[in-house]
């Protein structure tokens, strides 16, 4: 079989697209933010950014992943993967053409045929545990797969009851989706699952476009060399994320500020509590990224749009951009 290219384009070498990069980094610091949906123009490095993110994150868990399996009336604990082999957290691609059994896992037919053994062959969801599950063109994903993902993402556990197998294993992953909104809309219940939502647009500044072409060319010509050139920047960002992770548990949040965030969500008439929770988590992660132990108004202002944009009620006839609406509300709640 032909080897697939080894090097991926470094995250730090992506030109501009600040908001998208920031949203990805925040999720890397705190996975409980709940994932990210990147929608926007075609050809704006959405997939490149997502795929390169995992390389920034070293594998933290040392424990093997185990599944509970019910076999001949006995409850067994079977190991699924050797996590120590991995150098960075998994970034698992969920192709649009994936079948249900590959997503949740199935009977390992090879073991059954050659060793007469009943065992579980883990699916994509198991592989994404502790890392990211990435769906490109997420708005085109088949409905039965969406239903599956929603169930697992909500519970953090993958329960497989098929082909006589009875298996359950932990499945906590950050859901990342990209797409172009002109190809179709996401079902609201899937939209709601994503913690952050960023919009990307075409870079129009000529100098940045030139830079972009040059970096692409350099990468295409000699990927190994290009990756080496960016190693220093990559390591610096890696280190910063690790530091931020350590800081995260000790982040302080002002009662007053908390009240204001809730007020903001009320003003925007956002249903449920996921809105304010996401704003607070993302703001805390941003403070940690900056090396501060206290969340400030600036952190909240910086993450409010990406945390709330997709939670506003849809009104297609409204002229005003949802981002502007949130910014206006911010100005009213935090007058300078």
């Amino acid at each position: 079989m032909e080897p697939v290219r080894k090097h991926s384009f470094p995250f730090t070498a992506i030109v501009a697209q600040r908001e998208m990069k920031r949203a990805l980094v925040l999720n890397a610091i705190d996975p409980s933010i709940g994932g990210i949906l990147i929608m926007g123009h075609r050809g704006t490095a959405k997939s490149t950014a997502v795929r390169s993110l995992a390389h920034l994150l070293p594998m933290s868990q040392q424990e093997d992943m185990k599944a509970e399996m019910l076999l001949n009336g006995q409850q067994l604990l079977v190991p699924l993967f050797d996590q120590n082999k991995k150098t960075h957290v998994p970034m698992v691609d969920l192709p649009l053409s994936a079948t249900e059994d590959r997503v949740v896992g199935t009977l390992d037919i090879e073991a059954a045929l050659t060793q007469g053994k009943k065992s579980f062959e883990p699916g994509l969801i198991a592989r994404a545990h502790g890392g990211f599950l990435y769906i490109d063109e997420v708005n085109l994903l088949e409905d039965h797969l969406v239903d599956l993902l929603l169930d697992v993402a909500a519970s953090g556990v993958n329960i497989v009851e098929r082909e006589g197998l009875s298996v359950r294993h932990p499945a906590r992953f950050v859901l990342v989706g990209t797409g172009n909104p002109e190809e179709g809309d996401l079902r609201p219940q899937l939209l709601d699952r994503f913690g952050l939502y960023t919009q990307v647009t075409t870079i129009t500044e000529v100098a940045q476009r030139v830079e972009l072409v040059q970096r692409n060319e350099a990468f295409a010509k000699d990927p190994a060399r290009f990756v080496l050139q960016w190693a220093e920047k990559q390591n610096a960002l890696k280190e910063k994320i690790l530091q931020a992770r350590k800081l995260l548990s000790g982040i302080e949040l002002d009662e007053l500020l908390l009240g204001k965030v809730v007020e903001l969500c009320l003003m925007l008439k956002i249903d449920g509590h996921r809105g304010e929770i996401t704003v607070l988590r993302a703001a805390s992660a941003l403070a940690a990224f900056d090396g501060r132990s206290k969340v400030n108004v600036g952190d909240v202002a910086n993450v409010a749009v990406m945390s709330l944009r997709h939670r506003l009620r849809r009104d297609p006839m409204e002229e005003i951009d949802t981002g502007k609406k949130i910014e206006n509300a911010l100005k009213m709640i935090f007058p300078i």
């Binding site: 050809g43 075409t202 870079i203 000529v206």
Partner: peptide
């Protein structure tokens, strides 16, 4: 290259693949 990129911006194409 700069000229090409300026053309891209002036023609208002979607995305940055065109350049």
């Amino acid at each position: 290259l700069e000229k090409l990129c300026a053309m891209a911006s002036n023609s208002g194409v979607e995305g940055n693949r065109a350049e």
